[in-house]
Amino acid sequence: MLPFRDTLRGWLLRRLPAVGRQRLTQQRIYLLPTPFGALLLLVAAAVWVGALNYGVSLAYALAFWVLALVCVSILMGFRQLHGLVIACEGWAPAFAGDTVGFQLRLTAPDTRLRRLQVHVIGSSTPVGGACELRGGMNAELTLAVPAERRGRLPLPPFEVCTEMPFGLVRAFAYVRLAETALVYPRPVPDTGRGRRQSGEEGAAVRFLPGNDDFAFLADYQPGDPLRRVAWRHWARRGSLVTKRFDSPVAQGVVRLDWADYPQGMDAESRLSRLTWRVLECERRSEAYLLRLPGMTILPGREGSLRALALYGGPSA
């Protein structure tokens, strides 16, 4: 790719706002002749020169018709994209090193046959797909974006392009959708080696949040079950509090702790191992409790993995 084209593309991408759903209009659609289109223009020029020189009048007609055909196919290419609505319907979380599948939905404004290609811009490996819209239907397309590290993965800017109908003109649009996927840490098998073996394991936490005995009242947190809200307290005082119960540490509850690892181990390695252990517990249907510095995460796959993914990040 030519360097100036990269510069131009970078400039265009910087100007590109992230939107929830993108409707392609003339402000977003770019049109360039393909090498084939340029070749055909060259042929038209050659025929024109020949017509000029040999005074072959009908050859003028041919040269001009080809020229007009290229011009009309510019408009036809523009119409392929014009009015198209692109939105992201969701994504499936993935582990670092895998790919996140962003579900795109492309909706056409009319029944014209459209054949579109979508590529992620600036990705080292080609990421993209093709879809065909006909009869006014809409199409779904999954963009499998490689997730290199844990955390939030914004849907990268991508290009929607088509060379329809004749391959003479490439119509394309850059789209940046405001959609962010979650990438869990890459699980690293942790079979016990490297874990700090200490005797204070049992003493650190006496109780697990449980269901058995009422322990205390705590301020209501969003997400607390409604049946544990102390409604009488609310009626009297006007503030929401939740009843908390403790249950004694049950046998077989696995404690997954940030502090399980030697001092020198870096955060990512710890998170990867913890992720593996969470998955392992889930697989064996074991009860577990995850503790990260400054927080204890309630059991549950999504919550635990989410906490691991976002640990230390700006929105953690």
């Binding site: 020169v49 020189n53 040999y54 001009f64 011009c71 009309v72 109908p165 004749f166």
Partner: peptide, 30 residues
């Protein structure tokens, strides 16, 4: 698509055919 494209480009071709300047002599001889 062929019919559409050729049909739409026909009037443009005719305009170019009649308006684009013609040379009165050849550029080089055959």
């Amino acid at each position: 698509q062929t019919a559409t494209a050729l049909g739409l480009s026909l009037p443009l071709m005719l305009v170019l055919f009649f308006i684009m300047p013609r040379l009165s002599g050849p550029l080089w001889s055959m």
